[in-house]
Design a protein around this nucleic acid. Structure first.
Lengths: 271, 271
DNA sequence: CTACCAATCTGGTAGGGCCAATTGTAGGAA
DNA sequence: TTCCTACAATTGGCCCTACCAGATTGGTAG
């Protein structure tokens, strides 16, 4: 998630996309756009709040709320009596910043999808390993219950995106590690739309559901090697899908026709 | 990191601890304190902004900035024309929220330290695995350079906390996965103080430095099994240390008696 | 050249006011 | 009575002004 992604500018993506983006979020996108348009590099300073607010056509108050958000996500740094400075997005900014920008309609990028899945795989492996050791009877019951719900949704020809999320979150719960739960939850927030597209095909939903049951069995038996093998295979589905979807052509985008307008790639050098 | 942790209230901890907490951060702590003092549960609604601002003795403006931060960290949910609602911190809030509360002086909790290290270990394993495959000559050079700096600091009887962080971040860099870099960076932000305490003993710093060199060698040889073995041992140091440091004095709290809300649809009515 | 001071710029914050959306309720119509 | 409509209150979203404190800067006096 570099700031130099060649997708349409964020605010334009917001306007084009049908997704309802809260107005507060929109301002954040416009601030990012500003940084991109002015080719701000890491460590560069934004204009003073008063003038930036005027430039963006918003009040200083709304601007400061957006900046407070960006600061908590380590996208910018607020120095009292000095100014607001851009951070190095690809190294300093929080993972939540990725979630945020993704929510705002920035197009999925092949490299980002790959990186996301790589990290998610590491966390899921850890989760299932711990779950094999620590799972309780309650954890198993919950997992089986969710699996039954998933099957019901599939039978009704529904989209199992939320069921899938519930299953994986319950799996994370079974690890009895709340940090892990929260980090994986962030991934599900980030990939919500991607997964919805993925599960649009009911065959993938069915395959996923079958694998979930296998995962439950492995956790029940506390069979760590098998569980890891299964989770790798499970995540491999998505990996293969996105590799095929994103790699061959830049113009194929699952959700909506992408606007391949003239987008100059703003150079961003490493410091 | 439950909101019901029995540590002193956050704002009191801020005042007691010498750490300079920005005033904006302090307000966030007081909001958390308010939720704790009023025993707000997940889904509960805060008072209206105007009255909450008056209660906390701050302007509505400052309050909204703090709320914007808490919302971006998924600690609260802002519903337009309705109110501010507390989220389930254990499951919904972002990992950055942990960082934030830790920065504000909430005492390190044995369970949290264990959970943190478990997740960090998973990420570091993934990082070093990818680094073995993708590391460039430049990556190696950077790692060796940092190691040399570390040795120099050790020779000068300094604290190698920042060197250690630089090393692990460079290692994450060598994985060529920016998501991984950012997530690990968040961990270093969270554990900065802990690591400083850990490295107060130069013997631990020396041992760490030696292990770093071994890690570099394994990455250079692209020897994944050895690298993983080394990184596990490396992180095991900290794990053992904190287990011994925190376990004896701390009383353990029941892990999670509450049921999860992952499966059932969240329905929050107003008032 | 230095030391000092004042003007200026910065973010931090308080407070008032207006708007739109939502909600609760009272009143009127069937 | 029941239903529905219209009004009023509440709430967050946002703008604006004003003031404060720290930092910077530039000029001036020594």
């Amino acid at each position: 998630m570099s700031i130099a992604v060649s997708a349409p500018v964020v605010s334009a993506a917001i306007a084009a996309a049908g997704n309802p983006v809260p107005p507060g979020r929109a301002l954040i996108g416009r601030i990012i756009d500003y940084a991109r348009a002015h080719a701000l590099e890491a460590g560069a300073r934004f204009p003073a709040e008063r003038s930036l607010a005027q430039t963006l056509g918003v009040g200083r108050n709304a601007l400061r709320e957006a900046l407070a958000t960006l600061e908590s996500l380590r996208v910018v740094e607020l120095r009292p009596n000095s100014g607001v400075y851009l951070r190095a997005l690809d190294t300093e900014s929080s993972f939540e910043a990725t979630v945020l920008l993704a929510e705002m309609g920035s197009a999925p990028n092949a490299a980002e999808v790959r990186e996301t899945i790589e990290v998610r795989a590491a966390l899921e492996r850890q989760a299932i390993t711990l779950a094999c050791a620590r799972r309780t009877a309650n954890d198993l019951t919950r997992l089986m219950h969710i699996s039954a719900d998933t099957a019901a949704v599939l039978a009704a020809k529904g989209n199992i995106t939320t069921c899938d999320q519930a299953f994986h979150l319950a799996l994370a719960h079974a690890s009895h590690n709340s940090v892990l739960v929260r980090m994986l939850n962030a991934f599900y927030c980030l990939t919500l739309e991607r997964r919805r597209v993925f599960f649009a095909d009911p065959r993938r939903g069915l395959a996923s559901c079958v694998q979930h049951d296998q995962l439950i069995a492995a956790i029940e038996q506390r069979n760590v090697p098998r569980a890891i093998k299964l989770i790798d295979a499970h995540l491999g589905n998505a990996q293969v899908y996105w590799k095929e979807t994103l790699a061959p052509s830049h113009r194929t985008k699952p959700k909506r026709p992408t606007r391949t307008g003239a987008t100059r790639a703003v150079e961003r050098k490493r410091r």
